[in-house]
Amino acid sequence: MTTVKRIINFYTEGFRSMTVGKKLWLIIFIKLFIMFAILKLFFFPNFLQTNFSTDQERSDYVIEQLINKK
C-alpha cells in the first residue's frame, strides 16, 4: 500500500510541479480528442470491418478486388 501511495504521490507531485508541461498536456488532450472522438468516429471507419461481418466475406471481397482491378 505504501508503495502504491508513493507511486501516486510521485505522479501527482510531478504533474503539480510542471510549468510548460501543463500546456503540453492540454495540447495532447485536445489532439487525442480530435483524433479519436472526431476523426476516428466520423471520418475513419474501418472499411472492411464496417461493410462485412465475417473474415470470409472480407477475404472474398479483397480477392474480388485483386482479380478485377486490372
Binding site: 508541461g21 503540453l24 495532447i28 487525442l32 483524433m35 471507419p45 474501418n46 478486388q65 485483386l66
Partner: peptide, 29 residues
C-alpha cells in the same frame, strides 16, 4: 525533448486510421 515528444506523440496513429479506411485492400493483404 518533452515539447517535441508531447506534440508529436500519437500523430502516427492517424496513419493507422488511414490504413483501415483508405487502404483496406492493402491492410488486408
Amino acid at each position: 525533448f518533452g515539447v517535441n515528444f508531447a506534440i508529436g506523440v500519437a500523430t502516427g496513429i492517424i496513419l493507422e486510421f488511414e490504413f483501415g479506411t483508405n487502404w483496406s485492400n492493402y491492410s488486408w493483404f
